[in-house]
Design a binder for these strands. Sequence first.
DNA 1: CTGTTAGCGCCTTCAA
DNA 2: TTGAAGGCGCTAACAG
Lengths: 334, 334
Amino acid sequence: MARASSRPGITDVAKLAGVSLSTVSRAMNGNPTVDPALAERVQAAAVQLGYTANPVARSLVLGRTQTVAVVIPDLENPTFQAVLRGLSRAATADGFHVLVADSREDLDAEQALARATRLRTDGVILCAPRMPEAELGELLSALSPAVVINRGAQDGAPVVGADYESGMREIVDHLTALGHRRLVYLAGATRSVTHRARQRAIAEAVARTADLDVREIAAGVDFDSGTAVADQVLATGATGVIAYNDLVAMGLLSALTARGVAVPEAISITGFDDIPFAAYTSPPLSTAAVPAVELGERAWAAMHAQLTGGEATPMLTLTPTLVVRGSSAPPRTV
Amino acid sequence: MARASSRPGITDVAKLAGVSLSTVSRAMNGNPTVDPALAERVQAAAVQLGYTANPVARSLVLGRTQTVAVVIPDLENPTFQAVLRGLSRAATADGFHVLVADSREDLDAEQALARATRLRTDGVILCAPRMPEAELGELLSALSPAVVINRGAQDGAPVVGADYESGMREIVDHLTALGHRRLVYLAGATRSVTHRARQRAIAEAVARTADLDVREIAAGVDFDSGTAVADQVLATGATGVIAYNDLVAMGLLSALTARGVAVPEAISITGFDDIPFAAYTSPPLSTAAVPAVELGERAWAAMHAQLTGGEATPMLTLTPTLVVRGSSAPPRTV
DNA sequence: CTGTTAGCGCCTTCAA
DNA sequence: TTGAAGGCGCTAACAG
């Protein structure tokens, strides 16, 4: 009588259908070696009882949970949100569940979360842009199977990422094609992998473009970082600004507008990422669109492949798309 | 030899420490009835082997998973993202894991997801603003324990929500206090609970404010819905617009700016929610700030209380805060 | 094709 | 205080 309110178990179904446990199990799992008549009887009994197999028990015996974990540094960041969205939807479509863990930019927590979530899932998708390479390598072997997002190639796991270098190259080329020669680069998270990619692209562009001058100013990664450096930017006399990301660009745009500096007439601004609101500023932001949702989808695909024994893509790189909107224009002719 | 690469089990630790399984189990769970010396030996063995108890096996025997599910209609919506963030962080702080399920605004999927995720978690937090009341009631009893977000009081579960009526009242009063008498309300998701709350507040304000006229125009819930009704809004000759939410307000703001209509000089606009970007438009948006992160935290608290046998709060309502920024001002004196 | 028998890895009475 | 034994709910050989 203790079981009165508890969910029906496989035993109850077996009893009601007048068969053994194994038959119920087989029938419920669509095993074709079951007599159709019996299978039907089992189905009926299951329906009558409202029976659904206990996934925890199945997980224990099968050794798989049909769940993956996603470790993300900051659930507030629009790019990670998009990655999560793409991942979640793709995984759901394949019948998997998703456990989210927000490490809140804490490097220690990141490791611990990844390891802990791995114990209750079949694999983890890791967004850890700032974890030192050595730690990452070790962690990945403990996590296996894992998928890494936005990092250089790894031994232990497939990597899915965007080509920030290419995106930045397109940005710089766009600006120089418009005629800009004096630019400012607002640097963001200087210890992240994606920052270095941006720097490389800029250095390379400077090397191959006549008269091009790009001055780097340390900013940050958020809106306020952009507003904070407005005067510094104006002081350089640059005709164009390459912001680390859209948030910084929007902050700068806002501060310049407040100072009566016309964008793009007096100065051009570009962002990076193409977050949802980039299209809605005034003027709308020219930027490099990182396919974050697709990044999530591909990360899932890479995980799914490992889970189903398919061959792993060691490294997949998506190319950002230059999106020219209203914040960039030719420099004012003097 | 088959176990070579597999994780160490409790048996391995027992063997290494020279004790029985039960002792290891007790020691690992900090059971005080274990000889300190033995406990230490067990700890050492566990560390040496890198042993961690298998959470799936524990879940099966204990009947709890230390995991809760969150069902959300749209991971792209900034408000739900904030709820998820608050919830995730609060749950993590209490040692719980969070499974996310994005129902993609599909009512059938919503039900199915909620039921399915419940099987592998200890409870579900449900955001289902559009589910019919009858269905919801039935679902909740199947889900128990559950917590509902942003709905009217329920029998089966505690409800945590924001007082949209109060928020809207503050918005209208703010506008009328500025001197506005001819307003437009841009209606959004007309079948949601939160829409009706807004309507009630407006009707009530109209009833008690002399000469106040509020015309309702059907819009939608996103940026484009706002831009689409710009001309219609202008045609009314209203001096102020109450948008369903910030997104709609931003769309309208953008369209009006494009038409050369000055905000707030020619027309005031208010939003609702105070999403992250509301502060960053030009002019920044006056709005009612819904404490979405706190909503998530409180929802977790309500769940945690049920899980630990604490008394349940049947209904908790948070009050939005009026945030006056640049998009609202007194109407132009004719 | 079906039933019986072992576990999956762990916790928890029950005896000792 | 410790160990032995049973079982959480299910699947997968292994016989029949």
